[in-house]
Design a protein around this nucleic acid. Structure first.
Length: 577
RNA sequence: GCGCUUGUAGCUCAACUGGAUAGAGCGCCUGACUUCGGAUCAGGAGGUUCUGGGUUCGACUCCUAGCAGGCGCGCCA
């Protein structure tokens, strides 16, 4: 029930009628015409720019056109109270209170689906996110992208798309060899008392490797731990499993669960890389050539080498990209192309990749490869999540991988909790660097938007609790012709914007719009709540411990939207705080 | 040097794919508590939307040239 779309449709039908009667000239497309939320200072509910858009083609000033149209819009239906015209040529529609009573009666019947875009085509999406190397626990740097991917998936599912959440496991290549050697060094440390070679920069120094080593030793008595060469294949497998289990545990504590884990190694072993390169070669996207040194680079150290390149410049990239290393093995990019071919073969309508800011430079080449493989554009959408700046004691907190002093997801969750972490990280556009202030996030006051929104829900729950009605159960009252005043209608108006919010968030893949919206809704509610101080008639429960049906409905509608929104964010709505 | 990205109130950020007099929170200044749970509310001050051009009825938003910060730039994934 998107009232803006509803009236926009009516207006477009009206325009078509007027066009047939020869009263108005229309452009080939009516896409530029919209129905929007008017600024607060205007006393109206929906505003449209029709007159301004049609002004030129009709060769009439927008104001004249608006005057003419506004009379016709007024008679569109019985719920329109009045139609006014504002300065450049906006047409503003004010709805009658009876409209809002109807509206609220309707949405109360669909608590879980209010806001869903019914008109949109339903698609199959694959969302790939996190995909951190399976060499250790997740740290704060992974967190934002993980939450972003999870909530984008929730958002798409909410809009009735089919979504698969996938994790690409980079279990192939040099770093995995180094990782396995590190685990092995820890094993030797434990079993043979050999000191861990801490100066070896290729090895991973983290303490968690000691746990991995202990787990592997105790579960695999039969292995000959003295001979690395003999056990290296098995040890690699075991080490990756350890790391993945830890990562899955970390994700779970963030409230995240993937549907699929796809192994890079298994793609390589199934010769999918060779197959995709054959395909690209047949289609003339691959050649043997040399890459030139970048300009600022000291080109003394630059050695030009002939290697297998993908013509990503054909698709808008800055340079062509290497597929094969000089030792004949595949580059990361090559197996990633194979992975994306694999995704395409699974017949998704859209692929979404969530990347960290440090991988933004990778976007052009991977979208180029998908363009080449699918012969179409915009199949792959890459979304970048910017850095998180940690702030502790009002100072930026820098992490160093070398020292091993980085903050893990475990640290984060045990200190500030899942909900606060999720809400704060989602509260800003993912394009913008985020200040994550530890002390602030822990604070339980209005400085923390999470509690501000949750408190709104808790207040509503408390009213329901007082009158012994379960808030989570559908209302059993016969809806009728309630009379609401402008105080309540103000909140209904906000509720009517919810479908618009969902729509924008889901189309632009910008989940931050949801916490921002929920905060605004909560704010209106808190204001309303305080009206009860001066005006007894604005209190929910009367002196004889009763509540009227219109107020029950009013509260129910608000709580439904809050719960729905918090569900998408993956954040709890406690009934008591 | 090139690419991507950001630049909005003192600070942290919004702004509904180009709309109206650019909105919140924090901080600052007033005010509301024997609380239908104050983890709240009411009011005030605070702006040349980084700069210069352009596109049009209309620009924080699009184009262009700069400035400033961040990230990245051969076979590391």
């Amino acid at each position: 029930m998107n009232i803006f779309d509803y009236y926009l449709e009516k207006i477009k039908l009206l325009l078509n009628d007027l066009n047939k009667e020869g009263q108005i000239i229309l452009p080939s497309s009516l896409d530029g015409i919209n129905a929007e939320i008017p600024p607060e200072k205007f006393d109206c509910d929906i505003s449209t720019n029709v007159a301004m858009v049609l002004s030129k083609i009709n060769n009439k000033p927008p104001f004249d056109l608006a005057e003419n149209l506004s009379k016709k819009i007024k008679s569109l239906d019985e719920y329109i109270d009045n139609v006014s015209i504002a300065k450049p040529g906006f047409i503003n529609i004010k709805l009658k209170p009876s409209f809002w009573t109807n509206f609220i009666n309707n949405i109360i019947k669909i608590p879980d689906t209010f806001g869903v875009n019914e008109k949109e085509d339903k698609n199959k999406y694959l969302v790939e996110f996190v995909s951190a190397n399976p060499t250790g626990p997740l740290h704060v740097g992974h967190c934002r992208g993980a939450i972003l991917g999870d909530v984008i998936s929730n958002l798409l599912s909410f809009n009735k798309h089919v979504v698969t959440k996938e994790y690409y496991v980079n279990d192939y290549g040099n770093q995995i060899i180094n990782f396995t050697k590190s685990v092995y060094a820890r094993i030797r440390e434990i079993k043979f008392n050999e000191p861990f070679p801490i100066d070896n920069e290729d090895l991973y120094p983290g303490d968690y490797l000691v746990d991995f080593a202990n787990n592997i030793i105790s579960a695999n008595n039969e292995l000959d731990f003295e001979n690395y060469d003999k056990i290296s294949i098995e040890l690699t497998k075991l080490s990756i499993t350890e790391a993945l289990n830890l990562i899955k545990k970390n994700l779970k504590s963030l409230g995240i669960e993937h549907d699929n884990f796809v192994s890079e190694k298994s793609l390589v072993e199934a010769k999918e890389v060779e197959k995709v390169i054959d395909y690209l070669t047949e289609n003339n996207h691959v050649y043997k050539g040399k890459i030139k040194a970048p300009k600022g680079e000291n080109d003394q150290n630059w050695i030009e080498r002939e290697q297998l390149l993908f013509k990503s410049t054909d698709f808008g990239d800055d340079k062509d990209r290497a597929l094969q290393k000089s030792d004949g093995s595949w580059t990361y990019f090559a197996s990633d192309v194979a992975y994306h071919k694999n995704k395409l073969d699974r017949k998704y309508d859209y692929l979404i990749n969530i990347l960290g800011a440090d991988h933004a430079g990778y976007i052009k080449r991977i979208t180029s490869s998908v363009d080449a493989l699918s012969n179409s554009k915009n199949k792959l959408i890459c979304k970048v999540s910017q850095l998180v700046k940690l702030i502790k004691d009002n100072k930026p907190f820098k992490m160093s991988k070398r020292k091993g002093d980085y903050i893990t997801v475990d640290d984060l969750i045990s200190e500030v909790g899942k909900d606060a972490t999720r809400f704060i990280m989602l509260n800003r556009s993912s394009d913008v660097e985020l200040d994550f202030d530890f002390d602030n996030v822990k604070e339980k006051s209005k400085e923390n938007p999470l509690y501000y929104v949750q408190y709104c829900y808790a207040r509503i729950s408390s009213v329901y609790r007082h009158i012994n009605i379960d808030l989570s159960v559908n209302l059993k009252i016969s809806l009728s012709d309630f009379e609401y005043t402008s105080d309540e209608i103000k909140i209904f108006k906000k509720i009517s914007e919810w479908p618009k919010c969902i729509d924008a968030a889901s189309k632009k893949l910008e989940p931050h719009r949801i916490p921002v919206y929920l905060y605004e809704l909560a704010s209106l509610f808190h204001s309303y709540w305080n009206l009860g101080k001066d005006k007894p008639e604005k209190r929910f429960i009367s002196e004889d411990k009763k509540i009227s049906d219109d107020k029950l409905v009013f509260l129910k509608a608000i709580s439904n939207v809050i719960r729905s929104g918090m569900n998408i964010l993956g954040v709890e709505t406690p009934e008591k705080m």
